[in-house]
Amino acid sequence: MRVLHTADFHAGRNLRGFDRTPEVHEALNEIAALAKSERVDAVLVSGDLFDTGNPSADAEHAVFDFFLRLRDAGVPGVVIAGNHDSAARLDSVTGLLGWVGIQAVAQPTANPVQMVRHVETRSGETLTVGALPYLSERRLVKAADLLGGDTGAWRQKYREGMGFFLRRLGEGFRPGSVNMLMMHATLDGAVPSGSERTIQFDLTNQYTLSGLQLPAGAQYVALGHIHKPQTVSDAPLACYPGSVIQLDFGEGGEKKQINLVEVSPGRPAQVHPVPLASGRELRTVRVDLENVEARLEALKDFPGLLKVVVRAPAGTALPGLKDRVLRVAPNTLAVDLDAAQEDLLVPDLRREGLSLLDLYERYHQERRGELPDDLRAAFRQADEAARTEEEVL
């Protein structure tokens, strides 16, 4: 049996105001073509189909067009919701996806065995998938356990909750079938990309799973959530295929891939990485202030997208710097000061003492421009509601 494993599409991703959805769509077309040319029996998508819970029409078109292409190639699939996906939204279209041969598991059920999916493949063998969508830490760790507890206790409580689901999913494996586990989570030892979303990783890395918790009957564990391709366990074999394009500058230079898994019932799986060619290359360039034009002139034929970090003496006035960069390199999405100089040159860039709303406004300003008043009000309302809920708990 040949199974194609992919994850982390993030359709709808907007990087510094630049829509990456067309590149994601191109990558998904490439993956669908690979599914056909490699004569795969099934496709597994381990979460984060979309970048936000309310994706754009173009983002939905990219993902659903991918599933239609798989249907045209006669390739069934199983998908789960990731932490960026709206589980309720994905759950609402599971019936429609089923019509094109895609089994979606968007939300956990009280009986985890109901999250086991069986796929009859054209090879004549059955693929059994224990499909565990993203489970937030908040759903598994009670507030009462957090009060006065240390971080180690929180992690242990999370592991115990996840362990319950993993054990029950393992009970759904069948003898004589190819048995796989699929989930969207962080395993111990996983190495993240150098993502710009450091705050997100600081949070998620507090809650990890041990490879020892994976059901022994799983011949392959199809993971999603970490954007850097890697193998994190050998027994059972557990892999992240990574994101399908370089999603932000922290992933610059990474080679993107899908995993082609060859496996038979009762036999060890073999994984063959297949490189992807889609998506524009991202590159961070560090330049000295006096050499900005000369350094960037050498990159005038670079077809990808640039982030330019300018080194300048502390206290230097930098009016018109972004315009200088864009005149030479119009494919630049970001012009930043050297990290060592930022606090000295622009004191208001410091994070100390900033509220959650302040941080969100800065995030929105960097990536999409000024924060609209209605979005600011909605964020403030959601933040206040979350604080009220915590006080009640």
Score class of each variant (00 low, 15 high):
11 A>Y: 00
13 R>S: 01
13 R>E: 00
16 R>Q: 02
17 G>H: 08
25 H>V: 08
25 H>W: 13
30 E>R: 12
30 E>W: 10
31 I>D: 13
31 I>P: 12
37 S>I: 13
41 D>T: 06
54 N>P: 00
55 P>T: 03
55 P>D: 04
58 D>Q: 15
59 A>F: 00
60 E>G: 10
61 H>D: 11
61 H>K: 14
65 D>E: 15
74 G>W: 06
76 P>L: 05
76 P>Q: 04
81 A>L: 00
82 G>L: 03
83 N>Q: 05
86 S>Q: 07
87 A>H: 12
90 L>C: 02
90 L>P: 01
92 S>I: 08
93 V>C: 13
94 T>Y: 01
99 W>R: 11
101 G>M: 04
101 G>P: 00
106 A>Y: 05
108 P>G: 04
109 T>R: 13
110 A>M: 10
116 V>A: 09
119 V>I: 13
121 T>M: 11
125 E>K: 15
131 A>F: 06
135 L>M: 13
148 G>W: 07
151 T>D: 14
153 A>Y: 11
153 A>L: 13
154 W>A: 12
154 W>Q: 09
163 G>A: 01
172 G>L: 07
176 G>S: 08
178 V>N: 11
185 A>E: 05
185 A>L: 04
186 T>H: 03
192 P>T: 05
194 G>A: 15
195 S>Q: 04
195 S>Y: 02
213 Q>L: 15
215 P>W: 01
217 G>I: 10
218 A>Y: 06
221 V>R: 05
226 I>G: 03
227 H>E: 04
231 T>E: 02
234 D>P: 00
250 G>D: 05
256 K>N: 02
257 Q>C: 10
260 L>M: 08
266 G>H: 12
276 L>Y: 14
280 R>W: 14
281 E>G: 07
283 R>I: 08
288 D>K: 13
290 E>Q: 15
291 N>Y: 10
296 L>K: 06
303 P>H: 11
303 P>N: 11
313 P>G: 11
317 A>R: 15
320 G>N: 10
325 V>P: 03
326 L>M: 04
328 V>H: 01
330 P>W: 07
343 D>L: 13
344 L>A: 12
345 L>N: 13
348 D>Y: 12
349 L>E: 12
350 R>L: 09
352 E>A: 14
359 L>F: 07
360 Y>G: 02
365 Q>M: 13
366 E>P: 01
366 E>V: 09
371 L>H: 08
372 P>W: 04
381 Q>T: 11
385 A>F: 01
390 E>K: 12
390 E>Q: 12
390 E>S: 10
